[in-house]
Write a protein that binds this DNA or RNA. Structure first.
Lengths: 199, 199
DNA sequence: TATATTTGCTAACGGTGTTAGGTAAAAAGA
DNA sequence: TCTTTTTACCTAACACCGTTAGCAAATATA
């Protein structure tokens, strides 16, 4: 029985090797320059071996994107746990989101298809996990405000749009704004969002 | 002299033909499936002829993107002119922006590099023209509010982020929200933006 | 008419994702 | 232990892609 187990383990190792190598290439050369041939070359296997583990190139990128969401969720969760009131939690989470995006540019581009060929992103539990994190303080604030007719899901999308919109604009453009000003835009938008939620 | 003129005119016609054919292919099959070979085939010229008119594929997409910005600016301007007060102008312009994005999905994706390989978007006067349109009512509101310390450029980026963020999220995702709800998110965000600007 | 210029072509280079088909080694069954 | 089956892995190819070198024919200039 242990023979079969070893084989499964070895196969899993190759799979992991493919993913880590792909991620290495993406970090070093950008995702645009990732190719199946480069991965095969780096792991010293022939090209079809890749297809024994992944259906196609997109599913490799998809897997890396999932890692990205896991990391983002971790960071955002940590940020949230630093505070015990909703407005501060939102501020802190927006900060964490912001930092993640620019400290992990390749992840972020992969996750949100910025300048990317992929990305009919399908359902992804990592993503809904992230959503739940953001929605918690929003729900709390809605309850406190007493106005239960406010749609929390709607508010979540609004907040996410503010953050993502700004980031993707900066990432795609040759950013004629300074970094501090960019951050001010986000803070301004988030403050507006919070005020609109409170009153 | 008219011989040379005719030649220039004919060359210009081929250039136009390349662009219109490229745009046709993009509309019919999506920008991901646009290729130099397909354009050459459709206009019944050989491949290198394309390179007599454009440096590379990217510059063809760039030119189409410029058309997109021109059209967007037209729509937004029209929307603005329907009203004579700043808050209504902002609402109307956000509406027009929204409608443009979804009525001209291919243009929008091209213009903002959604799932696109191109797009170190360079400086583009069409873009700054659009920016100026959006900034007019913002400036007006800032003046009325008396708080001149508010950075108009910052506010413009905030508004744009709200709109673009939501749209790009919807476009990239398999949109699990209904269309009405999506529109509500935008309206909500824009209202929040306006309130934050007023008080 | 002879020369120069422009126009457009074929063919190739080097790259991409993907797959068909074969071989040799390893595991399983007799 | 020997045969059969399965697995792992490879080579080679297909059908694309963007881009360019180099050549032939058509046109304009002298």
């Amino acid at each position: 029985m242990s023979i079969a187990e070893r084989r499964i383990r070895q196969k899993e190792e190759v799979r992991t090797l493919i993913l880590s190598t792909a991620w290495k290439i993406v970090k070093e050369e950008g995702w645009q320059s990732l190719s199946i041939r480069k991965i095969a070359d780096a792991i010293e296997y022939s090209i079809p071996v890749i297809y024994d583990h992944f259906a196609n190139k997109e599913s490799i990128l998809f897997e890396i994107g999932k890692d990205g969401f896991r990391l983002l969720s971790k960071k955002v969760k940590k940020a949230s746990e630093k505070h015990d009131n909703a407005p501060d939690q939102i501020r802190s989470m927006a900060d964490a989101y912001w930092n993640f995006a620019f400290k992990n540019k390749e992840y972020y581009q992969l996750m949100f298809g910025l300048g990317m060929p992929c990305c009919e992103e399908k359902c992804m539990e990592e993503k809904s996990g992230f959503r739940n994190l953001l929605m918690e303080p929003i729900n709390e604030m809605i309850e406190k405000s007493g106005k239960k007719e406010i749609n929390a899901c709607l508010k979540y999308h609004t907040l996410w749009s503010v953050m993502h919109g700004l980031i993707s604009i900066i990432m795609m453009s040759s950013s004629d704004l300074t970094n501090e000003l960019n951050k001010m835009v986000l803070d301004d938008a988030v403050e507006g969002f919070i005020k609109n939620l409170e009153k």
